[in-house]
């Protein structure tokens, strides 16, 4: 796979001094009576791959949604890259340098594959409506660059050239997953959030996906947060794992520690073993 077309420097953004890219402090989220997240302290070091695992309904996606501004935390605070993002709108958080994929693929179904990626680039584009109407040279140049860039990204995630003008809804399941990743990468994020990226994949494909995630970190110097349902998936790829159960953080540490942690085994692995 050739990735030289993507310049890692361009994807890094300006490197701040702080070691932590994201810090969440005592984040709590309540949905009428139900506490989906309770007092969660969580951080992500730069250029790390960390994972959040937990059984069904543990509150993983809810936590994700607060990191990306989709829900405002009921209490607690979140800062990203030195900026307090608590209560910010999703598009503002995206502009700061986060990008995500969804547990149940959510593409722009009736748009072409390439257009999906181009929308992903939206936050990094400057063209305004009046530029578009008058067709100024600046917007033409920008559009051309973005088209070029979108093609490179499709290639990076392994979508072949002729799928670029396909409607997203007509792509195969696997291609849709890849397209979602390409769309997320298009905004040159500092932090990539992947919500169960291997859902619906067989073991072989799952391995390829985790390899790909590792490559993304190395080659694009991304920081990645991974949600997983299945603990085995994240053992190899992530250097730190956080375990949620019933909305609470019950353990955090290196894969080996987590595997040995009795609370985790009871709350999670035990449950899975008996299931």
């Amino acid at each position: 796979m050739e990735t030289h077309a993507i310049d890692p420097q361009a994807m890094m953004g300006d490197e701040g001094g702080a070691r932590l890219l994201l810090e969440a402090h005592k984040v709590t989220k309540q949905f009428e009576g139900l506490t989906a997240n309770r007092d969660i302290d969580f951080d992500i070091p730069r250029n790390a791959i960390v994972a959040i695992i937990g059984p069904n309904g543990a509150g993983k996606t809810t936590f994700f949604n607060q990191l990306t501004g989709i829900y405002a935390p009921t209490s607690g605070s979140i800062s990203f890259d030195g900026v307090d993002i608590t209560g910010m709108q999703p598009h503002e958080v995206a502009e700061l340098g986060t990008a995500r994929t969804y547990q149940n693929i959510r593409l722009f179904q009736n748009m072409t594959a390439i257009a999906n990626v181009q929308v992903g680039r939206h936050v990094r584009m400057r063209g305004q409506w009046f530029h578009a109407i008058f067709g100024t040279p600046s917007i033409r140049r920008e559009e051309e660059e973005v088209l070029q860039r979108a093609r490179e990204l499709l290639e990076l995630v392994g979508l072949r050239r002729r799928t670029e003008n396909e409607l997203a809804k007509n792509l195969s399941y696997g291609d849709q997953r890849r397209l979602e990743v390409a769309r997320a990468l298009a905004s040159d994020p500092k932090l990539l959030l992947l919500d169960e990226p291997t859902a619906g994949m067989n073991p072989g494909e799952t391995r390829q996906m985790t390899d790909f995630i590792g490559r993304l970190r190395r080659e694009l110097r991304l920081t990645i947060l991974l949600i997983e349902h299945d603990m085995k998936v994240v053992m190899g790829v992530s250097e730190r794992i956080t375990v949620l159960d019933y909305g609470e953080k019950i353990a955090e540490g290196e894969p080996a520690e987590i595997r040995a942690n009795p609370r985790v085994i009871e709350a999670y692995l035990g449950k899975q073993a008996t299931a």
Binding site: V157, G158, M201, G204, D211
Partner: peptide, 11 residues
């Protein structure tokens, strides 16, 4: 190329 993801079976 082996580095790319392969498509998954539906479901």
């Amino acid at each position: 190329d082996g580095g790319a993801l392969t498509p998954a079976e539906q479901g």
